[in-house]
Design a protein around this nucleic acid. Structure first.
Lengths: 353, 353
DNA sequence: TTGAAAGCGATACCAC
DNA sequence: GTGGTATCGCTTTCAA
């Protein structure tokens, strides 16, 4: 198997021309090529293990069936890889291949990554980020159909459709879950105010309280950060040395890592979960939330769905392109989060309802 | 900017032929093209924002400057993404682009992923896995220069070079760190016996004891699994209801997640870390080990280095290929792990030395 | 020093 | 029905 077989090799072996080979192997044989020849061509292709040279096909057709994915740090970081997985699954199911380029958070590489991808004649582009955030869309992305996943254009005039999680609703449903368990004094350990996810989740939290006709107790919403130690210290501030009646009966964290910190703190203080304190995470991080002790109730981000939705929209745009109708501009698509109830949340302690 | 500029457009604008454009833009202008024309060509290229069509170049040169990366679940899972990051950095620095295809652990997709990549005319292939493991190398990988990262050929006759972490040494150095702190009764919560990492780390652990002339206490090596709950239950087995003199003074975990479980258990039992118990993780997982409370001492896997080493070797093979000399077959390259000392390990408690 | 021409491998139109 | 041929964009001889 020295060199790959070409269409010409197949044609020779089958005793026909390469045009015939092309037609038959692309399913347009009937009505153009004699049945008999078709069989011979297929046999020849099989014996030679012929597969078309995708590069040549791309050059000829001026489309590569490649979707370029630019990621800020999805590959490097442990987060949000399922966005790419979801996108790739959809792409693959339609005969597309995805090419991922990770800029490792170096924004100066954005344009060059897009340029490289464009030079490779990608048919479309997707930009994926770790964590919801505004994005300064690389100008060259506008040259081909594009979509944003987990981020949105920082210029209002937009133009590039975005698929993002419905964070407000997620925050609302998280709070609602706890309110339904009888909790009234719920603390919220948010990430930071820089990323849009935290304020949106907080907004949802407030919405839930409002819908229940209850006031959010002052000082119950703290922006502490996204890591284990942030959750730990935030929880200590809320719980350590505080008399039981003054303690929140539940803590919602900005993510599962923060929740780990809260559990760590609760363990140290001798508080039982969920009997003394209910704890919720956010993200449903793979093999973190489900394996915690106790297993974490959490709000799962719809990562796969987001990736799939973004890719589906992009591929649709690709196939519709000839018409070039902008009137169905999708703008932002909000994908709902999923509440996953496990063991870390329970009924409010007696006397605190 | 409707269609991208081609070499012909540049040639017209500069008033020369496309051959001249090609020569100049590929650095072989001197001695072939008049200085004056060279300037005009460069100017024309700049004004037209000309960049060569990579697809056409690939077809013509019969090499794509693309390295295909097949991953079992590196993209999807939160682990080991830095192998790809390290590999990509090296590839990019040499003008190559990497294309990642993730099979999501579906081995039946291995061959088709390789075939797809081969159809795209990749110049080389890399297979990357999450966690060290033997790999049934897809047969078609042998058609182009290839390399394995974090895995190794399950058939001894091999042929495909592999870059893997030096797990035995890692286990040894972890144990040595604790022995140097005076610990004599060290427990090892290993993952499972299916993946080769656990037994190798255990081997290193035993080696360290042997080198120190000490016996490993029976029952101190438990294979419990890789997750938080595994570490928790393993630790409870070792610690709960056990009198202080009979408790191990240190616990080494197969990974950082297990260590989280051990800390959780220790907190519940009222044991202070590291005063009562030293705990070590393994992996130095991003924003886990460093943000734990207390911050975890851990054995960092050399992920970036592995990826970089694998890609460096692969690219070298690509450039050497003409000679086709197998005599420098690299076989397996072992990359050392890095001990990261933080707060979870300390001197052995008084009286337990 | 320059430009014309031959491919790289596949597709699709158009005569036959 | 069939096969010749132009074309995609670029590189690289080879004449002029």
């Amino acid at each position: 198997m020295n060199r790959k077989a070409t269409a010409l090799d197949v044609a020779k072996l089958a005793g026909v021309s390469r045009s015939a080979v092309s037609l038959v192997l692309n399913g347009r044989g009937d009505g153009n090529v004699a049945k008999e020849s078709q069989v011979r061509i297929r046999e020849a292709a099989a014996t030679l293990k012929y597969t078309p040279n995708a590069i040549a096909v791309s050059l000829r057709n001026r489309r590569s069936r490649i979707i370029g994915i630019v990621s800020d740090q999805v590959v490097t970081s442990p987060f949000d890889g399922n966005i790419i997985a979801g996108a790739d699954a959809v792409a693959r199911s339609q005969g597309f291949v995805t090419v991922v380029m990770d800029t490792e958070l170096d924004e100066t590489r954005d344009e060059s990554a897009v340029a490289t991808l464009l030079d490779r004649q990608v048919d479309g582009l997707m930009y994926v980020t770790v964590g919801l955030r505004p994005l300064h869309v690389p100008i060259n992305m506008l040259r081909v159909p594009s979509v944003l996943a987990n981020c949105f254009d920082d210029r209002p005039e937009a133009g590039v459709p975005a698929v993002i999680p419905d964070e407000v609703r997620g925050g609302r449903e998280a709070a609602t879950h706890l309110l339904e368990l009888g909790h009234r004094d719920i603390a919220f350990l948010a990430g930071d105010s820089i990323t849009p996810a935290a304020p949106r989740r907080i907004q949802g939290h407030r919405d839930a309280y409002e819908a229940a006709g209850l006031p959010v107790r002052p000082g119950r919403i703290l922006q502490v950060g996204w890591d284990i130690d942030a959750g730990f210290h935030g929880a200590m501030k809320l719980l350590d040395g505080v008399a039981a009646p003054e303690r929140p009966t539940a803590i919602v964290c900005a993510n599962d890592r923060g929740a780990i910190g809260v559990v760590l703190a609760a363990n140290r203080l001798g508080l039982a979960i969920p009997q003394d304190l209910s704890i919720m995470g956010y993200d449903d991080e793979f093999r973190i939330a489900s394996t915690m002790v106790p297993a974490l109730t959490t709000m799962a981000l719809p990562l796969r769905e987001m990736g799939a939705a973004a890719m589906t929209g992009l591929l649709r745009e690709l196939s519709e392109e000839p018409e070039d109708n902008d009137d169905d501009a999708p703008g932002q698509t909000l994908v709902p989060c999923r509440l996953v109830v496990r063991e870390s949340t329970g009924q409010v302690p007696a006397g605190r309802a």
